[in-house]
Design a protein around this nucleic acid. Structure first.
Lengths: 200, 200
DNA sequence: ATCGGCTAACTGACCCGTGGGTCACTTACC
DNA sequence: GGTAAGTGACCCACGGGTCAGTTAGCCGAT
């Protein structure tokens, strides 16, 4: 693997780590935690497997680093965008805009957030659960406001609507992944149009 | 494994196959194609691994049989229900009702339809792609009608809306899976309520 | 100026658990 | 006694993880 060269190539650790992280995010996003292979990630980065283990300790360690890199950025932007949401449903494009813009540099990263092949216990599950909870809370506040304005008080309805809203966002992003020719800006406009059509 | 008994137990092939299929659907639905283990399926069915291979040939063969069992039934009902859908958006509860009722005996089966750990080439991918296409076509006819009535002619908008609608259905079913205490009837009512709230 | 050695970057080759798949064999029934 | 139902034990590819070793740069001592 790699270029067959034994010995240092002079690439400093920080730079190598960033590069590995980039390739790993792509690999994990496309193949999922279970499906991703350490050797493949190494090959993509042009290095050998042990170097990854030296820098990230384990597959879980690498996955955690990827998860934090992806979720941290996205969640931050989402929480900011949520401040712009008011009672109108159309104002929901703000979080959508935040997502599209955050994802632009590495779109597939989205799939890491809802990776179903992720472990269900341990540090990864804990971290992912935390991010998921924060995401859900953002969506939930909007759902509650929406239903309240329409005279529905059922907590379960609110819960279900939150799930639906997250599902909608997920669908749109997935559709975007299958249409790489669409720019983030175009997607935002499309969502705005559809939102108005559905609610108009 | 099994009960340690060597030799026939007198269970006829047809009956055994049905039983294996039932357990396999559950296992595949929960753990995905990649995550499911043949030994586990055998253990659940109270038999040993080679018997499954004798009856279904391979993991792919078993998965295909499960896929056909699940999708065939569901798709049939869906296509029937689609005939009841008219221009109103509320009439979309008919397909939803079909899904909830078809899934009632084995709710998790739903996850087989969108299993991301499924192979991306070969017989399984072909069959799944076919079922997905049929499902999409059902959803797409509704999307086109919906947008046409609202003066939007963009084909891409229709495509995206179809994806969104399928995402909504998926979210609702997933939410149902996490709330086993809800009956199919309750879910149908809840969806009806939410549909009206969103569109009202 | 240069030589020796320390350290950081980097590797091929290996270990081993897991899981798909196979084989030779056994038991019960018609 | 032939056939269908059923099994334990095995093979092997694959992937996570480890080890002992190699190379290049740097820095203090001669």
């Amino acid at each position: 693997m790699s270029s067959g060269v034994i010995g240092t190539k002079g690439v400093p650790r920080a730079e190598r780590e960033e590069q590995i992280l980039h390739e790993a995010i792509d690999e994990f996003a496309v193949n999922g935690y279970a499906g991703a292979s350490m050797v493949d990630i190494a090959r993509r980065a042009g290095i050998s497997k042990p170097l990854i283990y030296q820098y990230f300790g384990s597959k879980d360690g690498l996955y955690l680093a990827c998860l934090h890199a992806v979720s941290g950025d996205l969640l931050g932007r989402l929480e900011d965008a949520e401040l712009d949401v008011d009672d109108s449903v159309v104002s929901r494009i703000y979080p959508l805009r935040a997502i599209f813009e955050a994802l632009e540099p590495q779109r597939h990263a989205w799939r890491m957030l809802f990776d179903p092949s992720m472990p269900t216990s341990g540090a990864i599950a804990a971290a992912a659960g935390d991010y998921r909870a924060r995401t859900m809370q953002i969506a939930a506040s909007g759902s509650a406001r929406f239903l309240q304005a329409r005279g529905i008080a059922s907590a379960k309805d609110a819960e279900a609507l939150t799930a639906v809203w997250m599902g909608i966002v997920n669908s749109v992003v997935e559709w975007w992944l299958e249409h790489p020719e669409e720019s983030a800006e175009q997607m935002i406009e499309r969502c705005y149009r559809l939102l108005n059509a559905i609610l108009g």
